[in-house]
Nucleic acid binder design. Structure first.
Length: 275
DNA sequence: AACGGAACCTGAAAGC
DNA sequence: TGCTTTCAGGTTCCGT
């Protein structure tokens, strides 16, 4: 799953394929990826509507439609979800496919997007208003930027480890395990520190580190390349400073990187330069 | 209230 | 080679 940068990639894929076109068909064959009972029924209301926009907030996507209809579609990719656009002639079901949307532009050309999700931790909702998960998101570091004073205030009220606070989507929307690890390393802060123990200067460094970590990942991602989290093509060189590098020398001080578990999540850190 | 741990699922990689 | 174990980028629920 994707963290903010991969979800942004999914947003661009969907926006390119869907915006301005009219839904001609929607298939949601796997009930386990549906967010609630109303979704399957409401999904039928999408047929005939023109897609207005595809937006991202944190790890959530929202597809909105033109023409006064309030109905909207939400997608969370969970751990292994992804959207791909496929050639209209490609009718064969893709491996792990859990949903499909077909749209028609001017003329009669149609385009399909497929939702693939082997572990099915992702979810699709169709609702007539913004769902609670979307409304409760904190600021998105890319869309909204990070207000250091607000972040400092939020962290000051918690005693949990700062890394656990960063993973809370109401604190900052879109930070996941990898970017929490990377940002804390860049800011030289020990992930186990109680979040309330950070000085304002440390919060400022952390905010900058989160933004840069996400921006670097966004910049490294080619728009037209399919991102693979699993299966064929998933093996590219690890682009991260310390994630997935336990046992290797710290890029800053050369002492070996450690791996611990925090709130059930694997956490790599340099015990020497993260304090 | 706040925490750790388990659960939800499946596939790939590592271990034996 | 093949069987078993571990781990995975997320979130939520449950018990202490």
């Amino acid at each position: 799953m994707p963290e903010l940068p991969e979800v942004e990639h999914a947003r661009k894929t969907l926006a390119r394929a869907l915006v301005g076109k009219v839904v001609v068909r929607i298939a949601l064959p796997e009930p386990r990826v549906l967010g609630d009972d109303a979704t399957a029924k409401r999904a039928r209301e999408l047929v005939g509507l023109r897609v207005r926009d595809v937006e991202r907030r944190g790890k959530w996507l929202r597809v909105s439609f033109a023409g006064g209809a309030d109905v909207r579609l939400f997608s969370h990719l969970g751990m292994t979800g992804k959207w791909i656009a496929v050639d209209p002639s490609d009718a064969a079901e893709a491996r792990f496919e859990k949903a499909q949307l077909e749209v028609r532009g001017r003329g009669r050309r149609t385009t399909r997007v497929r939702y693939l999700d082997p572990r099915m931790f992702g979810a699709i909702w169709v609702a007539d208003r913004d769902i609670e998960a979307w409304r409760s998101l904190g600021p998105d570091p890319i869309v909204d930027g990070i207000d250091v004073a607000r972040l400092g205030g939020v962290l000051a009220r918690r005693r949990a480890p700062v890394k656990v606070a960063l993973l809370d989507q109401s604190v900052l929307a879109g930070v996941g395990n990898i970017h929490a690890i990377e940002a804390l390393f860049r800011a030289r802060i020990d992930p186990r520190r109680p979040s309330a123990s950070l000085s304002l200067a440390e919060v400022r460094n952390l905010a900058r580190a989160v933004s840069r970590s996400l921006e670097d990942a966004l910049a490294a991602q080619a728009d037209d390349v399919d991102i693979a989290y699993f299966g064929e093509g998933a093996h590219v060189e690890n682009p991260f400073a310390i994630y997935g590098r336990e046992g290797q020398p710290c890029p800053r001080c050369r002492s070996p990187l450690a791996k611990i578990v925090l709130a059930g999540r694997g956490t790599v850190l340099c015990a020497r330069c993260q304090r």
